[in-house]
Nucleic acid binder design. Structure first.
Lengths: 321, 321
DNA sequence: ACCAAGGTTTGACTTTTGTCGAGAGCCGTG
DNA sequence: CACGGCTCTCGACAAAAGTCAAACCTTGGT
């Protein structure tokens, strides 16, 4: 930096422009710089989180359907992204909504647990910047080998960066080749502390993975397609933070899970706000499993998925009566 | 309204524009309306608090001076508005800052106590809109006769309006002619409940009044200039929520105070965050009194006032040693 | 002392946004 | 059922904001 006009000037410009409502050229005059610079500073201010532009996500919770889903599944809050595309790329719609919701849920001083996956990374990627103080973002599960780009540590770091928060990574592989080694690693102080700290989180952000050949676990090489199929027949219904869960949302008793380094589901359940985001319609079963397991208090889904959830709940209650 | 496109459309437009980052003409296309309408909706969205643009007030707390004041007076947080005008009208600068700070301190579900005065009204007036849910704004003290425009109920209502919150007014005169009547009124359920509810607040916003002929109490006819002078010689040092306090920040034992309907200082002290805003440099003594009385945990002042505070603190500590 | 690299600043240009008055649809009322 | 009064809507213009390449410092290395 030249003479580090950075922070100070950016802040002043942002202040005059956004708080006082001056025009850019007025700001330029006050600060004795060119209007072009002001424009640039303002962009930086937005990118740094010095100014915060957020839009209320009310509309998406106020929806009747959202209320029904809340009631049917006893969730604290549900947001439904209207599928009836009023936006160019509907697939990012859920992510944009999720990012807004996330930012609305975060408070200063919070500790946030973040899992991994395409969904989470997409959210991180489009999330706007904020200036939360004393926020810590912790990684919920071990890392995966290189080939894939939505690595747990990347998700954690990226979100921490956007929030101006501290990122707490831990470097252990997500899955090891033997159970004994996994146990050993889990006992390692660095790892143990990290995992123990998960239950102290105020907010968790994750998605749920499908149990099929398209799963990240397969793509990353943690499991072969064949193993995945086998797990499925053993009752696997979804993947949470790298762990395979059954239809009740409990850890599936299988060799793979015993070799995984990740936060225990009990720790996750101890987190007050568990924000789950599901983009793909194909993840219906996994989502049901996650909800059944109490792994989600706050939910962001598309309209289509919401309908399926309601249908399911309706059918279930009819059968019960 | 034609077919009440209001909420829904405004919200969608705001969403596409601010969250998705589309341009106005793109939004117009999506929504099948003209760009001009979009521009109008967006303005409404901002005015309704559907979108929130806030700028961090960090710069003003990060200041060295602010830290010193915090330490010297044991305050939780201090914001200093630089007097060295880098803005056209420096007097509103403090108010703008105060409004931002206020919005930063408010949380969803909060209960907020608001006093009255020019300062408070100015803040309310320039405060941007927000969409806080479940916020209640309560009036801290009785009302004043008509002539003056910064009436307690107006301040309360205006702030409530900006926040999309519920305003809780109570209609009693600030000061009565006899002590007996005041006592009677205070015992009245409507009034008593309101006053009792003050200590449940999470945040208070007020300024401190001067004890001179310019005081609002005089201008509003609650006191004559002569009475004010008399109070001054009895030890009056400032005015908080309509009550006269002495240099220690305690209620002055005088006839006037006994006739006032207002929140007790003890209730005010029970409020976690007490945000005091002082615009005028002449209110030095009153401010000292308020601080001494523990009536302020968060403070917004101008640079000049901050200097005087520090000088005072420095002198006091020197004398002590 | 000179040069290259990196970042900042600027003026000129383009795109985007704000605004205004006119027109159009809807309602309650006489 | 025609009439103001009302708000919403639109097109066109003016204003403001965004962008870019070039000029310009500052710094650190050679």
């Amino acid at each position: 930096m030249a003479i580090r006009p950075a922070e100070q000037l950016i802040h002043k410009a942002a202040w005059l422009y956004y708080a006082h409502g001056l025009r850019q050229d007025e700001v330029a005059n006050q600060l004795k710089i060119s209007r072009a610079s002001v424009a640039m500073y303002l962009r930086k201010a937005r990118e740094t989180g010095i100014v915060n532009i957020s839009t209320s996500t009310q509309l998406f919770t106020d929806d009747v359907m959202a209320r029904k889903v809340e009631d049917a599944f006893k969730l604290d809050a549900v947001w439904i992204a209207p599928e009836n595309a009023y936006v160019a790329d509907p697939s990012t719609d859920i992510a944009v909504l999720a990012a807004s919701v996330f930012l609305e849920l975060v408070k200063k001083g919070d500790r946030i647990g973040v899992a991994w996956g395409r969904t989470v990374y997409t959210i991180a990627d489009i999330m706007s910047y904020a200036d939360l103080q004393d926020v810590t973002v912790v990684q919920l599960c071990g890392n995966l080998g290189a080939p894939y780009s939505y690595r747990p540590d990347q998700c954690t770091m990226e979100i921490a960066r956007r929030l101006n928060a501290k990122g707490l990574n831990f470097y252990a592989p997500l899955v090891l080749s033997t159970e004994a080694l996994a146990q050993g690693l889990r006992a390692e102080p660095v790892i143990r502390d990290q995992l123990a700290g998960v239950s102290d989180c105020d907010l968790a952000l994750y998605s749920v993975g499908a149990v099929d050949a398209d799963s990240h676990l397969v793509k990353c090489g943690a499991l072969t397609p064949a193993e995945m199929t086998a797990l499925r027949s053993q009752g696997a219904a979804g993947v949470i933070a790298g762990q395979v869960i059954d239809a009740n949302g409990e850890v599936l008793d299988c060799d793979y899970n015993r070799r995984v380094i990740s936060a225990e589901l009990a720790s996750l359940r101890a987190i007050e706000k568990r924000l789950m985001v599901v983009q793909e319609d194909t993840k219906f079963e996994p989502l049901l499993a996650a909800i059944a397991g109490g792994l989600c208090t706050h939910l962001v889904v598309g309209a289509h998925m919401a309908e399926r959830l309601l249908d399911h709940a309706g059918a279930a209650s009819k059968k019960a009566s």
